[in-house]
Design a protein around this nucleic acid. Structure first.
Lengths: 123, 123
DNA sequence: TTATTGATCAACTGTTTGGTTGATTACGAC
DNA sequence: GTCGTAATCAACCAAACAGTTGATCAATAA
């Protein structure tokens, strides 16, 4: 409530949308081409209405779009928000690597008086 | 605390954790170095307990770790899950670009036989 | 027209989340 | 020991979420 609800909101919805394995599965299926709600709902045990709700969540997050084809409403993957998510994550992922390099450099400096260690970087 | 080592569950928690702007802000702050709960809670209007809960969510998602320094419990950024998130997203981001290229090729092929209309490709 | 199919809308329920306040633990200083 | 500080635990509450069933809308086919 005490936040700028404008620009963060889209990021909120996108991360939240991908927090559900069913919705991630829908994204995975859509990556192989557009699909209707019935097609997307088929593999799941939940009702078609529930899948429709999931698709709505993905749509409001900007991750998919819906078009019209007769009485079908094919769902398409949308790239924009996926890009935004990687952009956000990469910012801190890279910073973290820098931190590790700094820590590494510090340790190397201190330990160079004693011995030279092998730098291992990934966790 | 037993973590479910299911990779799906881990992705669930990580995406969910980042769906909250306060938690993303905490990640941003931690990218500049470790910090205590009090330091992290200072800028926010919510209680320290609430911030502590947010940190717990981030910890269970594998995004941060907590160590011990006297009565303080500094929080550190953890890189592993951020990498996992970008890995998941990038898979479908790249596939989507390929889809667009295929669609583009299809439209070009079909329209070259009929007529050249103004192709509207935006939403 | 009527019937059928694809999909959404509406109302409802159980569970989870995000927040609060108050009590409690853990540690260091006195 | 007592006191102060850092942080968590516990109980509670309102709001949001994921699911259901039943009704409704939209488009095609008979």
């Amino acid at each position: 409530m005490a936040y700028d609800p404008s620009s963060d909101d889209r990021l909120d919805r996108a991360f939240m949308a991908l927090a559900d394995p069913i919705r991630r599965d829908i994204i995975a299926k859509l990556s192989r081409g557009p699909a209707t709600v019935n097609e997307l709902a088929a593999p799941f045990t939940i009702s078609k209405q529930a899948v429709s709700k999931h698709i709505r969540v993905l749509e409001q997050a900007g991750l998919v779009t819906r078009t019209r084809d007769a009485q079908r409403r094919p769902v398409h993957l949308a790239a924009g928000q996926l890009e935004a998510l990687t952009a956000w994550i990469d910012r801190y992922r890279l910073v973290h690597e820098q931190q590790f390099r700094r820590l590494d450099a510090l340790l190397t400096t201190q330990e160079s008086a004693t011995h030279d260690n092998t730098t291992e970087e990934s966790s």
